[in-house]
Nucleic acid binder design. Structure first.
Length: 209
DNA sequence: CGATTTTGACCGGCGC
DNA sequence: GCGCCGGTCAAAATCG
């Protein structure tokens, strides 16, 4: 167990999103409460365009008592078999096997080895207090599944970035103890900037990182 | 009409 | 080896 997942670059952060938060938070998004350097210091893998994911309009700093930040313990160490590079920053690893077709890629040879796609993608887990499930982080997501998981009363939703070359995924689930708390887990890194998706001028600020 | 969501089935990994 | 569980696929339904 140990020694294998110490590397798991999964971090969790707790943010506090005011109840008025709407699916369009991005309209008035702002950087977390802290500079992106903070994330890097924590082992955060910053997406190509800069900072990680922008979420809350009311992000609280780590020093705030209501904020928790923990490293997500992975039951599965995301075996990084050969996906090699072992460096999540190595973007080539993600572009080599997927040739951008996440939706058709595996439809073929269904009976065969599905894929050894157990690559260790960087994962960030945010715990936010919000009444909306999907926080608008500037990217466009498409839901591809929903599952009821064992330890949670609420179903977990699976989303993928709709951008062509981007295979970033995210899982969204609510805490069973507190249905106002939403846990969003991002997996992978975007190969594009948010405004690339939305092409809505509102997001231009994203690319400034 | 195209894009997105829903939903059940399928598959692989892991624990027992 | 078997069963459980999480994650993904894909067809159908729904939405804009």
């Amino acid at each position: 167990m140990e020694g294998n997942q110490g590397d798991g670059s999964s971090r969790c952060y707790l943010l506090d999103v005011p109840p008025v938060s709407r699916p369009s938070m991005a309209a008035h998004q702002m950087e977390f409460g802290y500079p992106k350097e903070s994330f890097q210091g924590l082992g955060f893998v910053v997406p190509p365009h800069g900072g990680p994911f922008l979420l809350s309009t009311d992000a609280v700093p780590f020093t705030n008592p209501t904020t928790t930040c923990w490293e997500k313990s992975l039951s599965k160490p995301w075996s990084n078999e050969e996906v090699g590079a072992s460096d999540p920053n190595d973007q080539t690893s993600s572009s080599k096997d997927g040739d951008n077709s996440w939706w058709r890629g595996s439809s073929l040879e269904k009976g065969k080895v599905k894929v050894k796609r157990k690559m260790r993608e960087p994962r960030f887990c945010f715990q936010t207090r919000s009444d909306v499930d999907v926080l608008d982080d500037g990217y466009k997501w498409r839901k591809y599944g929903q599952k009821v998981v064992k330890n949670s009363l609420h179903p977990r939703s699976y989303y993928r970035c709709t951008h062509n070359n981007c295979r970033v995924k995210k899982r969204v689930e609510r805490l069973s103890e507190d249905c106002r708390m939403v846990i969003t887990t991002y997996e992978g890194r975007h190969t594009h900037s948010p405004c690339d998706d939305e092409n809505s001028s509102e997001h231009e600020c994203f690319s400034s990182f």
